[in-house]
Design a protein around this nucleic acid. Sequence first.
DNA 1: GTCTATACACGGATAGAC
DNA 2: GTCTATCCGTGTATAGAC
Lengths: 193, 193
Amino acid sequence: MPPANTRQQIVNAANDLFYRQGFDHTSFADIAGAVQISRGNFYYHFKTKDEILDAVIETRLADTRAMIAAWAADSPDPAQRIRSYIRILITNWDKIRCFGCPVGTLTTELAKLDHGAGRAATEVFSEFRGWLAEQFRALGRTEDADELAMQVISFSQGVATLACAFDDEAFMRSEVERMSNWLDGIAAESTRT
Amino acid sequence: MPPANTRQQIVNAANDLFYRQGFDHTSFADIAGAVQISRGNFYYHFKTKDEILDAVIETRLADTRAMIAAWAADSPDPAQRIRSYIRILITNWDKIRCFGCPVGTLTTELAKLDHGAGRAATEVFSEFRGWLAEQFRALGRTEDADELAMQVISFSQGVATLACAFDDEAFMRSEVERMSNWLDGIAAESTRT
DNA sequence: GTCTATACACGGATAGAC
DNA sequence: GTCTATCCGTGTATAGAC
């Protein structure tokens, strides 16, 4: 088949490398090597490294929206939908154990670099946050929906960070289980009324 | 007064810069500038950048032990001791809001760099983990003391990551409050027997 | 112990041929 | 659109004077 759009190949490779090595530590040479393209070439597609970062974040934002849409299509049950989010820890464990959460690690790296794209990177969190809050609202938690959404994301960030540091799958699994039980409790409250 | 040991000054400056800018992104020039020393000079004290990192981690480990000892001296009450840990989020908020947790962000960075010192960095987590588990054991939770310790650390990591991304002090404070209430519940169980 | 000078590789970025 | 060649700053690290 004809190779996909070179620009998109660059973004895909950068997306992966920024996750695995960090943004700052990833060089043009790294990306060029992954795409099998000459270093000089992709200045045709992107003028600066920051432009690549912007494109990567845009891609991640789109991927996030697609993932959320898929979860929404999977089940109409709000609790089940929230569970889908929590279970990313299991689904992506192979990568998370090595590199942590792509969203959390990028935002903190950009914070340390004092990089302007930090706000854009945080948008990915906001996407999850808004959608999770919707689900909690559907469970009758109109007052604290946003707070609960933040708690769920915070939970997953903590587990990702610690489970990666200790490379501890058992801890990750027991925490997912615990969170799932907590969710059952909230869902039960909502059906009781 | 006579300037403190140059070696220690270097380590202190590196400690701070590694936290604020990240290890990889901090150059010798940055450290030299902070210590007001010539670049060439501190090769007398450290042969490589990795050696500075080792010294920084050693310092952090010592600082952690000192902090724990201070908390232990502050109160004999295990619940209060655990609360001291949780309240770091408030105490160090000025820095955490900008740079996250020093321990969590360093371990994840070193994981991405595939740096050998990652294991040493994780030791700082282990120090907290062991001590927190002791406190939960003192509260009668002999079975799941270590798991609870991990939950507390995981909690603080999640809050640090999210509160930093959104620069949201209110969220951090409400979460510290929630965790504190959870702790009260555990402490109450222990006195009931 | 501290400095200056310098070696040398790698980083991002540009020019211009094909 | 893709390549080669190249510029220039910065990064780690060394040599050697003081």
